[in-house]
Amino acid sequence: MIRLDQLDFGVLAEIDHIDTDELPLKLIEMGCLPGNDIRLIQKAPFDDPLYLQIDTSHLAIRKETAQHIFVRLKS
């Protein structure tokens, strides 16, 4: 299990758990929930923000937010 900001490009992973208190509810509502698939599409220069595909949503979040999301690699 790794933190989302350490995930490599294009690798399919699954959200393992999230730190609910630190994440905006909006992100959770957009599909950032345990069990959903997640993939890192792109990073901006200096690795921040991150462009992600979570379930069927495409969105960008800052690195500080990504540090509260923990993922498991899917082989």
Binding site: P49, H58, A60, I61
Partner: peptide, 11 residues
């Protein structure tokens, strides 16, 4: 207000 940044990347 807590600042956060969630931007949807539309098609």
């Amino acid at each position: 207000s807590k600042s956060y940044f969630v931007v949807e990347m539309p098609n």
